[in-house]
Amino acid sequence: MSRHTLDAKRLLCPMPVIRAQDKIKTLSVGDVLEVVCTDPGALQDVPAWCRINGHKVLETKTTDDEVFIIIEVMAAEGMK
């Protein structure tokens, strides 16, 4: 299990989702990914993407300028 950070600052949705999705494809089950965004829309979209693709959102945090979404990779993102 390893921990990774994805800088998705200044990107507007759906780019943070696409970046998170593409990053997760390279990770293994159990890895943790922290996505850092400035678009508050990511707070809806990244967890929605996780729900439909079977990953677990461990935590979301917001500061004045940034949102953080911490995801545990639950399933391999390769196609079945």
Partner: peptide
């Protein structure tokens, strides 16, 4: 703020 494509997928229960 919602992404309608994600919303649709969630309604349908698909990836």
């Amino acid at each position: 703020k919602r992404n309608n494509a994600l919303w649709s997928a969630e309604q349908l229960g698909i990836k």
